[in-house]
Computed example of a mutant assay.
Amino acid sequence: MLGENHALMYEYPEHKEKIQQLKQSDEAFAQMAKEYHDLDHQIRGLEVNGVPTSDQHFVELKARRVSLKDQLHQRLMNGA
């Protein structure tokens, strides 16, 4: 769906407290979460505002977001 918010809190509402804890206690998690947030914001902006961009660039942004989401989820499940 175009313009859908994929923020970690929406993707994993059952882990809201753990996400906040890891953002404060795990620098690597915090950096990945920030990059994920920034990418999600950028992608939504492109979708909602119809900003011209190449398909390749758009796919690369979305692929990076998925990769980060997978890494963040793994850290949430493993606790590190």
Rank of each mutant, 00 (worst) to 15 (best):
G3L: 08
E4P: 00
N5T: 07
A7V: 08
A7K: 15
L8C: 10
M9A: 13
M9N: 12
Y10R: 12
K16V: 14
K16Y: 13
E17C: 05
I19Y: 00
I19L: 04
L22S: 05
K23H: 02
S25L: 08
S25M: 11
F29N: 12
A30N: 15
A33S: 14
A33W: 04
K34P: 00
E35A: 07
Y36P: 05
Y36F: 15
H37Q: 12
H37K: 12
H37I: 01
H37A: 11
D38R: 07
D38W: 00
L39R: 05
L39N: 05
D40E: 08
D40R: 02
H41Q: 12
H41I: 10
H41F: 09
H41G: 02
R44K: 15
E47H: 05
E47V: 02
E47Q: 14
E47P: 05
E47F: 03
V48G: 01
V48L: 13
V48R: 09
N49V: 00
N49H: 01
N49W: 00
N49D: 01
V51L: 08
T53N: 05
T53H: 04
T53E: 06
D55K: 11
Q56N: 13
F58V: 04
F58H: 09
V59Q: 15
L61A: 06
L61V: 03
L61H: 03
K62D: 02
K62N: 05
A63L: 03
R64T: 03
R64F: 01
R64I: 00
R64G: 01
R65L: 10
V66S: 10
V66C: 02
K69N: 13
K69I: 02
K69P: 01
K69G: 14
K69S: 10
Q71Y: 06
L72Q: 03
H73I: 04
H73M: 07
Q74M: 09
M77G: 00
N78H: 02
N78W: 00
G79H: 07
A80Q: 11
A80I: 07
